[in-house]
Computed example of a mutant assay.
Amino acid sequence: MKQPLIFDGHNDLLTRLLSRGGADGFASPGHGAIDPEAAAEGGFGGGFFAIWVPSNVDSSAKMAAMQGESYDMPLPEMIARGDASDAVEAELAILEGLERLGHLTVVRDIDSLRAAFGSDRLAAICHIEGAEAIGPDLAELDDLYARGLRSLGPVWSRETIFGHGVPFRYPSTGDIGPGLTDAGKRLVARCDEMGIMLDLSHLNEAGFWDVARLSSRPLVATHSNAYAVSPHARNLTDKQLDAIAESDGMVGLNFASAFLRPDGKMRDDVGMDVLMRHLDHLIGRLGEDRVGLGSDYDGALVPQGLKTVGDLPNLRRAMRDHGFGDALIAKLCHENWFRVLGKSWA
């Protein structure tokens, strides 16, 4: 079950390597969810490689709080642009180092994506999760685009000058505050113009609807789940899913346990049946051509049966056992990502 190859909507490998020896640490197995050996074992062909600026958060306290029947984690403070720029440059250098070492190819259009996928290198989209390193005049976008940026989330789960993210809150919708700022609206227009895909996964609901109103591109949430199955602030309501379908967009299923489990708890005892419930709901609202995978590997606690990309055969097997046919499995594994990226970058 190593086929069809999987193209994944989100991973945090670059942030992990920031504290693991940089690009040279990638070839050392056992330190995280993605390494060359596990990729070969699991049929992992590439995905969106996120650049993320860490927050000063007590991870242990966060994990403990997310074991409760309900929780409301405070949003981290806004990151200063200088600090964000340093972190983005460091992680971008790691991505470029991985390319120099022959581990991956940074793809810049749909043709280079198709050419790299299934080769001896991973196909990598440069994605920034949270636009703190970009100023209100958007001047940094040109340089980032030249270095490969093709996907951008205006916010992570904290405020930026462009808008507001959703907190780690359960139970809750994402309707927790105001939408995009004037700078955020300019960012949407500029990304549309340049062909940089906007990722809506961490935007609050008001920001989501602002993008839906302003953008001429497909609406995409690279790593989000169904609120109807797990009523977490990070998940998408049926109304949001319907808007994504109307735009001919896409949602990537997030493997993070708290966003999968109906009880919202950050525990890894999650059966494949729960992932199938989310896929069934997403397919029911979006159709078979608008759903894929967005694992959040190396950035979240994931189910026991999917600890690394080497475990991805378990997911393919679960899809088949659930009754998904070969054509649908191929769409979920990579074909739908290729379809929406072709539209987003055109």
Rank of each mutant, 00 (worst) to 15 (best):
residue 140 E to L: 08
residue 29 P to T: 08
residue 346 A to G: 11
residue 274 V to K: 14
residue 214 L to P: 01
residue 242 D to F: 04
residue 314 N to T: 12
residue 186 R to C: 09
residue 35 D to C: 14
residue 96 E to L: 15
residue 218 P to L: 08
residue 65 A to K: 15
residue 148 G to L: 01
residue 168 F to W: 05
residue 142 D to F: 06
residue 304 Q to V: 06
residue 265 K to I: 03
residue 282 L to T: 06
residue 4 P to W: 14
residue 21 G to S: 12
residue 277 R to A: 13
residue 109 D to G: 11
residue 127 H to E: 10
residue 133 A to W: 03
residue 279 L to C: 12
residue 293 L to F: 14
residue 83 D to N: 13
residue 99 E to A: 15
residue 4 P to R: 15
residue 178 P to H: 13
residue 33 A to I: 03
residue 333 C to M: 11
residue 310 G to E: 02
residue 146 A to E: 13
residue 260 L to A: 06
residue 36 P to L: 07
residue 261 R to S: 01
residue 306 L to P: 05
residue 85 S to M: 15
residue 326 D to W: 05
residue 200 L to F: 03
residue 193 E to D: 13
residue 18 L to F: 07
residue 196 I to H: 02
residue 144 L to M: 12
residue 271 G to Q: 12
residue 115 A to N: 12
residue 275 L to G: 04
residue 27 A to G: 06
residue 337 W to K: 09
residue 125 I to E: 01
residue 323 G to Q: 10
residue 196 I to F: 05
residue 238 D to G: 15
residue 335 E to V: 04
residue 325 G to S: 09
residue 294 G to E: 07
residue 159 E to K: 15
residue 210 D to C: 06
residue 111 D to I: 10
residue 130 G to A: 09
residue 269 D to S: 14
residue 342 G to K: 11
residue 78 M to Y: 03
residue 161 I to K: 02
residue 178 P to V: 07
residue 78 M to V: 12
residue 136 P to T: 08
residue 116 A to K: 00
residue 226 A to C: 13
residue 94 I to P: 10
residue 324 F to H: 15
residue 252 G to D: 05
residue 337 W to S: 00
residue 177 G to W: 02
residue 93 A to W: 08
residue 137 D to G: 08
residue 234 R to V: 01
residue 328 L to K: 09
residue 233 A to L: 09
residue 132 E to N: 13
residue 106 V to A: 04
residue 162 F to M: 05
residue 309 V to R: 10
residue 65 A to Y: 10
residue 209 W to R: 06
residue 196 I to V: 13
residue 110 I to T: 12
residue 237 T to F: 07
residue 323 G to N: 09
residue 70 S to P: 04
residue 18 L to P: 02
residue 208 F to Y: 11
residue 274 V to N: 08
residue 265 K to H: 07
residue 51 I to T: 11
residue 293 L to S: 04
residue 277 R to V: 04
residue 201 S to L: 06
residue 298 D to A: 08
residue 171 P to F: 10
residue 255 F to E: 05
residue 327 A to W: 02
residue 55 S to C: 13
residue 204 N to M: 10
residue 58 D to F: 12
residue 272 M to N: 08
residue 30 G to M: 11
residue 48 F to Y: 11
residue 96 E to F: 09
residue 290 R to Y: 05
residue 16 R to V: 01
residue 286 L to S: 04
residue 316 R to W: 01
residue 20 R to V: 00
residue 1 M to K: 13
residue 270 V to D: 02
residue 333 C to G: 02
residue 134 I to P: 06
residue 62 K to E: 08
residue 305 G to R: 15
residue 271 G to F: 12
residue 56 N to L: 12
residue 34 I to Y: 01
residue 202 H to N: 11
residue 214 L to I: 12
residue 235 N to T: 10
residue 105 T to Q: 14
residue 345 W to L: 07
residue 250 M to R: 00
residue 107 V to W: 01
residue 147 R to Y: 02
residue 285 R to E: 03
residue 238 D to P: 08
residue 29 P to M: 08
residue 37 E to T: 14
residue 335 E to K: 15
residue 222 T to F: 08
